[in-house]
Design a protein around this nucleic acid. Structure first.
Length: 477
RNA sequence: GUAGAUAUAGCUCAGCUGGUUAGAGCGUCGGAUUGUGAUUCCGAAGGUCGUGGGUUCGAGCCCCAUUAUUUACCCCA
């Protein structure tokens, strides 16, 4: 006999887990729909040509590729085998499992550009697959819940992303969270302040690790990568700004001016240098957009600015982001971000539809689940939707229970009759173990008297009711 | 891909310096209670100690290999 198993990084979800997951999905779906997003579903399999090259070299390695049907090796030559997997891959696999929901969405928009009404707002809640090493909060199969808008540059979209993030987390009972926001333009300006060239990625990767390895660690890493000490000092002076959202914007701006950085990367002339601060502010797209998002949030009645943090060190890996970027962390839980997103100016470009700006974000349901569990925030532990169990004693009383069972179901009360004429003790244990709140005892005595006993499991109280009144009484409860 | 940790009952784990018949809690099943759960009491079932080699008079324990799981790095939801 072989021991049964499931692939690494995948999970089964039992009835109680599914019920909890559905709760998370419902909160997210309600929020997305209340902001006017419409549902979309795309295939599990995409053509590899759609997926490859969108996530960087690392991402390509993490794609699950699907072997072609039939004789997948029929086009393979001895030469291909000798060359290695790179030459082999396109001949044996033309499909892959989706890696995220944003790229399939971009493909959908490009394919259906003629029929869509822009701005197009869609949400999507489907599993994605990544072939990386599983560990805490990291699975090979997991669900993402994306909401994206394409076809508008309006910063209202960014503001609404913050509103939706807060609404979903609040709806789940997660109140101690931090929404981090930054702008790729700000990062670009910082990069310019360092006068570097072509090492943007090195820098972002190092900056992103700041909260993990600390300032000393980042300094060491940047020195190893060839940045000078003076440069690194400037970097930390800019990154180290403190204060409120508003204050950080102002101090960062002042820092840029001091460092002599212009938004387009050129050095300012002396004349420009003397220009009024306000004019320069307007030219820093990142800073002005972040200020605008803040104003829109205020006007929308957003009150949780203590949970919204402008973090100049926020980098995020996905290279297609060009504007605002977001990331959400649940505090006091050891878990990566539960949500993230940002604006991309040209996502559909590689599918032949350039110049369409979009902004979107995503919730990781599996991580939200893990956070809720770690914080003990799940209220329902019921393993079944059943509200009422009818117990019986023999074939005759089981038969007699069937009309009542039908009435309960017709009244909208999920109900079941215990299938076997087991000992009453066993039937009650079944109800208790599954968290069924109500048990009806319908034995020979009750049938003879035309009544039923109704027991409320939580309190242990029992009531004897005429058979005709049972359903009505339970509808009230 | 790199580095570490772990693997003993259905689950969570003990198991001393290598020494007789490998233990506990929870869960499961039966009984105390011919028709009442969660609480209490009594009892029972359940293990080729991940797998394969080796050392030894003797291995759950030591050594080697292998597989699986897991944590950190990289990257990310």
């Amino acid at each position: 006999m072989q021991k049964p198993s499931i692939p690494k990084g995948t999970r089964d979800f039992g009835p109680a887990q599914v019920a909890r997951r559905q709760h998370i999905f419902n909160v997210i779906r309600r929020t997305f729909e209340s902001f006017g997003f419409a549902p979309l579903e795309t295939p599990t399999l995409e053509n590899l040509s759609v997926l490859t090259g969108k996530y960087g070299d690392e991402g390509d390695q993490l794609l699950f590729k699907v072997l072609n049907s039939g004789d997948f090796a029929k086009d393979v030559t001895a030469e291909d085998l000798a060359t290695g997997s790179k030459a082999l891959l396109p001949k044996v696999a033309e499909k892959g499992l989706r890696y995220d929901l944003t790229v399939p969405f971009a493909r959908y928009v490009a394919m259906n550009r003629g029929t869509l009404t822009f701005p197009f707002k869609r949400y999507q809640m489907q599993p994605v697959w990544r072939a990386d090493r599983p560990q805490r909060g990291r699975y090979r199969e997991f669900y993402q819940c994306d909401a994206d808008v394409v076809g508008t540059d309006s910063l209202l979209c960014e503001a609404e992303i913050v509103l939706m993030m807060a609404q979903v987390l609040g709806g789940l009972g997660l109140h101690d969270f931090t929404i981090k926001i930054n702008h790729r333009g700000v990062l670009r300006n910082i990069y310019q302040a360092l006068g570097g060239e072509g090492r943007e990625t090195d820098l972002f990767v190092a900056i992103d690790k700041l909260d993990k390895i600390g300032r000393d660690g980042v300094t060491k890493e940047l020195l190893e990568r060839g940045f000078s000490e003076g440069t690194i000092e400037t970097l930390f002076a800019l990154l180290g700004v403190e204060g409120s959202y508003e204050e950080k914007l102002q101090r960062l701006l002042a820092g840029f001016v001091t460092a002599g950085v212009e938004p387009d990367g050129t050095r300012p002339t002396e004349a420009e240098d003397s220009a009024a601060t306000d004019d320069i502010t307007a030219s820093y797209r990142g800073l002005t957009e972040l200020a605008e998002v803040r104003d829109l949030l205020v006007a929308s009645g957003f009150r949780q600015f203590d949970r919204l943090e402008f973090d100049p060190t926020l980098a995020r890996g996905l290279s297609y982001y060009t504007g605002c970027i977001f990331e959400v962390k649940i505090n006091n839980v050891q878990m990566g971000s539960v949500s993230g997103g940002g604006r991309y100016d040209n996502l559909t470009g590689s599918f032949g539809l350039p110049g369409v700006s979009g902004v979107g974000f995503s919730f990781g349901v599996d991580r939200l689940y893990d956070c809720l569990e770690a914080l003990d925030l799940f209220t329902s532990t019921a393993e079944t939707p059943t509200r009422c169990l009818i117990t019986h004693f023999d074939v005759a009383s089981g038969r007699a229970a069937l009309p009542l069972l039908a009435q309960l179901r017709a009244a909208g009360i999920p109900s079941e009759l215990y299938p076997d004429a087991s000992k009453l003790q066993k039937q009650f244990k079944y109800a208790d173990a599954k968290g069924i709140p109500l048990v009806i005892v319908l034995g020979p005595e009750e049938i003879a008297a035309g009544v039923a006993k109704v027991k409320i499991m939580a309190s242990g109280t029992e009531r004897v009711l005429p058979l005709g009144e049972v359903v009505a009484a339970m509808t009230v409860e």
